[in-house]
Nucleic acid binder design. Structure first.
Lengths: 298, 298
DNA sequence: GCGGCCCATGCCTCTGAGGCATGGGGTCCA
DNA sequence: TGGACCCCATGCCTCAGAGGCATGGGCCGC
């Protein structure tokens, strides 16, 4: 078995077709990929996929193997990054990631904490979606990230920063904008804007809230990012439930209102890889409470 | 990068020589291995080893990479085992490992707990040194093991079974055998038998105890297993500190005596992989307290 | 200073990954 | 019901790269 097998398998599993995976993802030929997958199954000693006229479907063993294969490939990337880091000790780096939109609230505090370290190291800052932040932490590309607690990340440790309430976001001339507080039942019949799987944790919170409110609302739109959300809210006169920090992105024609009653919250956490032995990370974590205290906004 | 590179690198790192690793471990030629290592370094983007006239020495990056490489290879093995397991759900298996020598005390209790499961599954039993048990748990080859808590095993969870006192083990006609209790200071000047790195946890406990007793004793012999220990004790008229269960292995000419005062203890734990979702493991763990209560011997 | 050991490089062989052709099987639609 | 289309497996061939042999440079120990 070689990493090539794992790479091929992950691609095939994700695409669901040898032909398409060969052509679109792996730039190889379908017969070659077919043989590689057969070789892999022979070496694992289990059938990983069922071939059908419509493509492939993973077996139970295949699904188990897929999780492991992804982990292995992530570990290989982490190995490479870790070796590179170790090879360049001249000016250590500390990489901080932010859930897009959270930089405004938390970057100043994070930099204040790291102030004393700054002359001796290179702090890099980036912003991404939460799943990508999780992936970067897993791969060793980030030391710490302000993110959502992502599922199925056993090697990541999360420290709660704040529980952020969701608010209703809607056009400023919407009939509901006259309310000081929005009852979720008022949303029935309105154009509803939700989020895609680029924000799985938020999606779960929104869906749970709708269920808790006994509302069977199917989203009219699902968006990938806040800018798109604002645009859709304004242009389709829709309503969305978004974390409060989304107010940082509202154009003039869009307003926010609190939700009535027990508003749902979503966690913002500081995440890091538990195997990360960086002394700067240790310092950072030791002052996280201070950052949280100073950084909170009601 | 391929797994081949990682396998080659780990072998080279462990042996310290391209020539010897190629010939003895990898069954390839030295020039070929040299090129593979160069390819690996090119792909990682860091120098992993320094070539000298005496062989190779790892760089800091190489040491970091070695840890990761070992992990990756272990992960691959775990992937294979997990897929095989998932492919054969017909009669589930439950694999129990024992620190060699502990079977006598704990196997009956373990089988009693699993009694109701036995008709529906295949329980396999094996015994090994504790580090090998840890490795097997990591690789998914074992579900649970009676072992020492091994260092640097973040993915393993340990539940304390018992704290086992160490006792002095010595020939029955040794001058100290007349004592009911052995003062560690009496060991000074005697042939002292310790253990090798096949039992790292025990070795640490022994060394800490010697240090705590302010005794600067260098072992005359280091043994790999209990049988060898007994043999050496008898044949060299030496003395060893061993866990109490070693009494299960004493020949007629060897006796044990308690240690005076605050005798050192070593933990016996039940270990398992935290990602192991086996329902039988869950059942087993829910009855571990019962096993411990029944299984303890003073 | 010389012999021996270790590693890197040149050059060649051969293995296996990959490509093309093709056919079997299944599905969908007219 | 039959034909078209899609997907995968297999036969056969090419060629890229892993591996082997020869050889030389550099270092170390005697």
């Amino acid at each position: 078995m070689e990493l090539r097998h794992l790479r091929y398998f992950v691609a095939v599993a994700e695409v669901g077709s040898l032909t398409v995976a060969a052509k679109r993802r792996l730039h190889t030929a379908q017969p070659s990929l077919s043989r590689q997958m057969s070789d892999l199954e022979y070496e694992v000693g289990a059938q990983l996929m069922v071939r059908t006229a419509r493509g492939i479907e993973l077996t139970a063993a295949g699904r188990v193997f897929l999780d492991h294969a992804r982990l292995v490939l992530a570990q290989v990337e982490a190995a490479r990054e870790a070796a590179r880091r170790a090879a360049e000790p001249s000016k250590p780096s500390f990489a901080v990631g932010f859930l897009t939109g959270q930089e405004m609230d938390w970057l100043p505090e994070a930099m204040r904490i790291l102030r004393d370290e700054l002359p001796n190291m290179e702090v890099t800052v980036s912003s991404q979606y939460s799943p990508q932040l999780a992936d970067a932490l897993m791969r060793g590309r980030l030391d710490v990230a302000f993110m959502r607690p992502e599922a199925q990340t056993p090697d990541l440790v999360y420290r709660l920063v704040t529980k952020e309430p969701l608010v209703a976001v809607l056009p400023d001339d919407h009939r509901l904008a006259a309310r000081d507080v929005i009852d979720p039942r008022d949303i029935v019949g309105e154009t509803f804007v939700s989020v895609s799987n680029t924000a799985p944790a938020l999606r779960v919170v929104i869906n749970d809230y709708l269920e808790r409110s006994k509302l069977n609302i199917t989203p009219d739109h699902e968006v990938d990012n806040l800018a798109m959300a604002m645009s859709l809210i304004a242009s389709t006169r829709g309503v969305a439930f978004l974390p409060a920090y989304a107010r940082n992105f509202m154009p003039r024609s869009v307003v926010s209102r609190p939700l009535k009653g027990d508003a749902p919250t979503i966690d913002l956490v500081v995440g890091y890889h538990k195997a990360n032995a960086s002394p700067t990370l240790k310092l950072f974590l030791s002052r996280v409470d201070e950052l949280i205290t100073r950084g909170r906004r009601s």
